[in-house]
Design a protein around this nucleic acid. Sequence first.
DNA 1: ATGCGGACCTGTTAGC
DNA 2: TGCTAACAGGTCCGCA
Length: 271
Amino acid sequence: MPELPEVETTRYGIAPALEGQKITALVIREPRLRWPIPKDLPEKLQGQIVNSVKRRAKYLLLETQSGSAMIHLGMSGSMRIVSTQDAPEKHDHFDIVTAAGDIIRYNDPRRFGSLLWAGLNPDTHALLRKLGPEPLEEGFTGVYLWESSRSRRISIKQHIMNSKVVAGVGNIYANEALFMAGIHPARQAGRIALPRMENLSKEIKTVLTAAIKQGGTTLRDYRGGDGKPGYFKQELRVYERGNQPCKTCGTPIKQIVQGQRATYYCKHCQR
DNA sequence: ATGCGGACCTGTTAGC
DNA sequence: TGCTAACAGGTCCGCA
């Protein structure tokens, strides 16, 4: 499911039930996520007040006085707010219960997600320390992207999907941004000139911002924290459109595999 | 340092 | 209709 816009949509959905609220319990039903949920996490969280819900890359950070809980949704995770009379369903791996009586419930069929503890300065956590800049912040620019790619022989698509380069650009939005920027996804990152990198950094920001505005992209079963699907799917230009006509020129969209991930592009519009 | 492939899981769909 | 294989929104790790 979730790329950056979907994680951001989830953040909007769950923040009102968490911010300023006291956590009365963390109920774990299945600790075997990508990394096991730490055994001492329930006692760490119990009694803590959530000051704010933030996002770094695709991690949600629940900030409390003593540190932050760090949640990743993996490929198939989602969170929703339920109440005490709602029985847990299949793959509902943990609940965060608040003093107001809300339950923030985590569901993840593939269990690629995680729930970890990050301490008082989450940026120093091993999983966050090496991340590149946030794509929607000022530190991510065409100059940065250009400098980060000199002498790199990897394809531009794999380069922008590398979380050390920029945090949180996943497969859907990498495909879409490259189409919007008119750049062929297989082009070597180190061979793209600065003006085109300026263009690409802008399109990454534009496509992510537009997707957040639409509540994310619902492909199969994704729902935001408020239970609504995302409406960005109708805006997709190339993703999952193999053999269908390019919305700009009509040429059939090509589908290839790069780094074991599906890539879609228009061979006429992208060079 | 860089790049590649494998690994972790379950559910859905395409193909025979 | 039913079985099997391929594929799916992520990303870390180990090896060459």
